[in-house]
Computed example of a mutant assay.
Amino acid sequence: MVGRAGGQARAAVVGTGLIGGSVLLRLRDAGLDVAGWDPDPTTRRYAREQGVACPDAVEEAVAGRDVVFLCGPLPTLPETLSRVAGATDDGCVLTDVGSTKAEVAASAAAQGLGHRFVPGHPMAGADRAGVASATPALLDGAAWVLCPGPTGMMAFRRLAALIIDVFRARVVPMSAPEHDAVAALSSHVPHLLAGALAGAVQRAALRDAVLALAAGSFSDGTRVAGGPPERTANMLLGNRGQVLSELAAVRSFLDGLTDALRDGDATTLTAHLGEARTARLALHGRAFSTHHRQFPATVDHEGELAYLRELGAAGGHLTGCRVDGGGVTYTGHLPMVAEAA
């Protein structure tokens, strides 16, 4: 992302926990002029020890910046957005990294910030928290959702270019409601299931014996249960309707497995497990086709917005966003449909 004066962008990160701290460190390592801020004085001091400017006032940290990443807890984002918007000029791109998007997108629109706020969500994390756990490599190559809006295409382009260049991310453009629907099943429900399995073990009469025998299936299946409970609860409550809807679908599938097991129906049990195996095998190693799409840079963006949202909804992503010569060129990738045997 090129700054408004033609040089490299000046960035700020507000909220420097695991994700925010990792964003901060990667921007620092990429050579950007970056400042951080966190409400916790100890965290600010730690950031300074890492060689990053971290003023005591958030207004000082974000003043004169080209882009600001909002990385605090989900419930604080609307208020933080308002505060940061008031301390930055109209050309500063604002984004967040929260795991739900509809609520913060609505708040930005209500505040008249839709032209420069781009909701975002990097699909990466860890089962730990805090800036001491942050690493510049945490978000490398991640799928990073950005939610372009009809009045914010210029901001989307600038932000997408920076995220692709600095984080080597796969930018997934989606509408905020589509993100929340997809994230419910891909991320939020898995946190509930991990918590349910780990919680059942915690309550088990032979808890220590179970943990002694726990192998990869238990470890992999409960990894996210090791994260901070408050953070997970905020995520689930922030997307409650979608999570409950998708949880019902999971419950229905589990009921099918349960009925087949109770009835000793090996055929049905095997068929259900086969469906599950198909999805799991499709998770890695998918082939993608590559294409390039160009749009005029300064005219009505309806076609460009439709292309971006359709790309994300189809499971695609961007690895290039270049604005020059009066136009914007996207490098997009779509999953290839496997031919039937």
Rank of each mutant, 00 (worst) to 15 (best):
R4K: 15
G6M: 06
A9W: 10
G17Y: 12
L18D: 07
L18K: 14
I19T: 13
V23N: 12
L24F: 10
L25T: 04
R28V: 03
G36E: 06
D38F: 02
D38G: 06
D38A: 07
T43G: 03
Y46A: 11
G51V: 04
G51T: 02
D56V: 07
E60T: 12
V68R: 03
P75D: 05
P78A: 10
L81N: 02
R83L: 06
V84Q: 00
A87W: 06
A87L: 09
A87Y: 02
D89E: 01
S99L: 02
K101N: 08
A105H: 05
A105N: 04
S107D: 05
A109G: 10
A109T: 13
Q111A: 13
R116A: 01
F117N: 01
A124Y: 09
V131A: 14
P136Q: 01
D140A: 14
W144L: 07
L146I: 04
P148D: 04
G152C: 14
F156A: 08
F156N: 11
L159A: 05
A160V: 04
A169K: 01
M174P: 06
A176P: 15
E178T: 12
V189C: 00
H191R: 10
H191K: 05
A196C: 07
L206V: 08
D208E: 15
V210E: 04
F218N: 11
A225L: 02
A233E: 03
M235D: 05
G238H: 09
L244S: 07
L247K: 13
R251M: 05
R262Q: 13
R262F: 09
L269H: 11
A282Y: 08
F288D: 06
R293M: 06
P296R: 05
P296K: 03
E302I: 02
E310D: 11
L311G: 00
G316F: 03
V323K: 01
Y330L: 01
G332H: 08
